[in-house]
Design a protein around this nucleic acid. Structure first.
Lengths: 211, 211
DNA sequence: GTGCAAATCTGCAACCTCTGCATTTTTGCA
DNA sequence: TGCAAAAATGCAGAGGTTGCAGATTTGCAC
């Protein structure tokens, strides 16, 4: 399999992790915008130019693992059972994410701290949320029988995305979880389903494929 | 009053408008990222350094008038009548915006074209939407009797903001309006109210101020 | 009209992110 | 041990953005 990819790959991975680790420490200490690529490179024992072989931009260091995150969501949405709605699948996926991740780990706490302290990173975060919305919109559109860029799809997805952000925030509050995270998620679903239901009752349905 | 602010102010305003006008033309022609500050400055007959006296960044030229936009919203929300919800006020404000603005003007069309063609500008647009959400969150929180960063507030506001984006999109579709814009807005409100109602039924209410 | 102070404009130097390109070093493997 | 691919590096440069100091323009009082 691809587990053992040779020494070369492993070393590259180690370097990548080292960059992340050292960079995050610096960001946390001085703030994202007050750390230069040159400093990160020095801290990670690489040439400044080499940094860009690992990450396309400074921001991407902070969000280094979001690719697998998205991949996991996409997979889950694609593999959903017959009769399972996109919303159901999303809920299930979120539950698994919550269970399988240590949100109290120093690294995660550090990440949140760094993001909260930097406008640029918050902007980048929003971009990623948008990507998250796009993933959802695909399945949601099929569920509702509407085009991906329709208003209904957009609203539902935006509300769901707000939940994601809220989850991030829940973990920020000092220490323990003031609420059961899953309860937070369920609240989102009550809201979204209530909204969708109201739409269904009010408007018969869109013209659809006409013209 | 402040209508006549002297020659100095007027000249500054004229220069500002000239920058916007010339810059937008260039953006439209070549794409936002393929126009440099130096070129904008040359086109507007100012020194490159002077550009930054008028706009803090290249992006801000495109969104030059959003300040008044936000100010108008804030004002409307602050001045709402007794018993009028934030949602109602928002709807009213949107209706006025729709009526009072020529969305088919060349300048507006150009702006939309430029934004759609540039990832950087779309990102900036999202930032502004976030600001829009913050404005709303304030009043919405009071309405719902919850903190501004609560999940419910966040969701409602996110859904409403999705409507704004959708409106932009509605005007993009080639020429005429395929739908009555106000009908689009009303759909949003049906959704949001349905969601809020569902929440009210399911959960009694939050603990509130308790620890 | 003259002159002064404040507001503007401008040029300069510098910092930073990010890219392309050519060169050198390292690594995997025969 | 040697070769080819991969990775790291150095260099030069474009472009956005800022701070600073000097030159210009403007508003206004005299």
């Amino acid at each position: 399999m691809a587990t053992e990819q040779g020494l070369r790959e492993r070393k590259k991975q180690r370097t990548r992790e080292l960059i992340v680790q050292r960079a995050m420490a610096l960001f946390d200490e001085r703030g994202f915008e007050h750390v230069t690529i040159a400093e990160i490179a020095a801290a990670a024992d690489i040439a400044p130019r080499t940094f860009f072989g690992y990450f396309p931009s400074k921001e991407d260091v902070v969000f280094h693992d979001f690719d697998v995150f998205f991949a996991s969501l996409r997979e889950r949405l694609a593999a959903r059972a017959e009769g399972e709605s996109t919303l159901d699948a999303l809920r299930d996926w979120l539950a698994q994410m919550l269970a399988g991740m240590d949100h109290e780990s120093p690294a995660e706490q550090c990440r949140r701290r760094v993001i909260v302290a930097s406008p640029a990173l918050q902007a980048h975060d929003r971009e990623l949320i948008t990507r998250f919305e796009r993933e959802l919109a695909h399945g949601m559109a099929a569920d509702l029988g509407e085009p991906e860029d329709s208003l209904r799809v957009r609203m539902v997805v935006a509300a769901a995305a707000a939940a994601l952000q809220e989850l991030e925030r829940v973990f920020d509050k000092d220490a323990g979880l003031p609420e059961d995270p899953m309860a937070v998620i369920d609240e989102v679903f009550v809201f979204v389903r209530g909204g969708v239901e109201a739409l269904r009752e009010s408007a018969p349905r869109h013209p659809g494929v006409t013209s």
